[in-house]
Simulated scan of single mutants.
Amino acid sequence: MAADHPGAPPVRYLGPAEIRDLATGLGLSPTKKLGQNFVHDPNTVRRIVDAAGIGPGDHPVEVGPGLGSLTLALLDRCGRASAVEIDPRLAELLPATCAERAPGRPLRLVRADAMTVTAADLAAAEVHGGTAAALADPPTALVANLPYNVSVPVLLHMLAEFPGIRTVLVMVQAEVADRLAAAPGSRAYGVPSVKAAFHGRVRRAGAIGRTVFWPAPKVDSGLVRIDVFGPGSPAGEAPWPVDAATREAVWPLVDAAFAQRRKTLRAALAGHYGSAAAAEAALRAAGVDPGLRGERLGVADFVRLAGVAAGR
């Protein structure tokens, strides 16, 4: 169901013809480097917003809005949105597209790289189609079709930079979706699984075929939802401090544990601790069997081990 916007005309979504017309007008050829595959199916963007479970009270931020298909769905549902776009041509066009097809709904647009964008960058960016006051609060949701070549780093950066986010719904390559949502002990479980689960409860939220994109990618896509730990979240309060200090302690352990998956933790963490004996001592102090491999540990195990390493 769309949000209620008294006096505002209905949102007009983009279809295949409109997407190609906009691209032609820009002289745009989608680039693999920027991960540009544009969704041209209105039902798909509505499905993404439905899966996110967001509504008029939310402030969604989108990464890589492209030609605006998902942006229009976010504006329709929430009545406002923020977006981060690195391509200057697309950033130039997006406000006009939204003003024409979703009038009366404010959009804040920051022209930046999502790998390095900051909360301050977003707060200082121009608001189109409304007042800055309408988007003064921090984002509460991340909803995006992430560039496949940098999807996990972008996701983790946005979660770290915008702690007010409570819901994440991202479309990524199907294989990456499997990794993000994998449970300990499974074949797909690895670094992305642990680092995503550090922030909240992660699950697959659906599959997306190739035909809804232009140009069609060579891989299938998957939806991943994260209910981020915090007040009012379905995931509840965080079981550990979700802050920079904890991440800086946990991330190196996770990276080392999975660098050579076939090694036991005693061997895999020897470099981190200075010796295999020191690694074994730290693991035993944290209640972790040194003979296990990294794929058997959950986030709580890594956090506990990091606490031991930091002397907490």
Rank of each mutant, 00 (worst) to 15 (best):
L72T: 08
R111C: 02
V170F: 09
A91C: 03
M115T: 15
D76K: 07
L146M: 13
V84P: 01
D121C: 06
A102S: 11
G130F: 10
Q173A: 02
M171A: 07
A112I: 03
L122I: 03
R187D: 08
M115F: 04
L159S: 11
V168P: 01
A134Q: 14
A120G: 05
P147F: 07
V170L: 05
L72K: 10
S186T: 15
A96F: 10
V168E: 04
G66N: 09
R101Y: 04
P147Q: 12
R80V: 00
G130P: 07
A141D: 05
L72C: 09
G190L: 07
A136L: 06
N149K: 11
A124C: 05
A144H: 03
V170T: 11
L75D: 03
G104K: 12
V127M: 08
P184G: 10
L70M: 08
C98Q: 08
R89G: 14
G129F: 04
E161P: 12
P147A: 09
P88R: 15
L146T: 03
G104I: 00
A102V: 00
V127L: 08
R77Y: 02
P147R: 13
T71S: 15
R108C: 00
L90N: 07
P103C: 01
L135M: 07
V110C: 01
A160S: 15
L122T: 07
L142E: 06
S186P: 04
R101N: 03
P138F: 12
L107Y: 09
E85K: 13
R179N: 03
E92N: 11
P88W: 07
A119F: 05
P138I: 08
V117K: 10
G164N: 06
A73C: 08
P147Y: 10
A123L: 03
A96Q: 14
T118K: 08
L155H: 12
A132V: 09
R166A: 01
I165W: 12
E100P: 15
M158S: 07
S82G: 14
V170E: 06
P106N: 02
L70Q: 12
R108F: 01
R80K: 15
A83D: 06
A99V: 00
R105T: 00
A123H: 13
V143C: 06
L72F: 08
E92Q: 15
L67S: 01
A181I: 02
L122V: 11
R80Q: 08
E85R: 13
L90P: 05
P95V: 00
A136D: 14
A112K: 15
A125D: 04
E175H: 12
L122M: 07
P163H: 12
R111M: 01
S151P: 13
A133G: 05
L75H: 11
G129V: 00
L70S: 10
T97A: 01
D76F: 03
D121V: 08
Y189G: 07
V172K: 13
L70E: 04
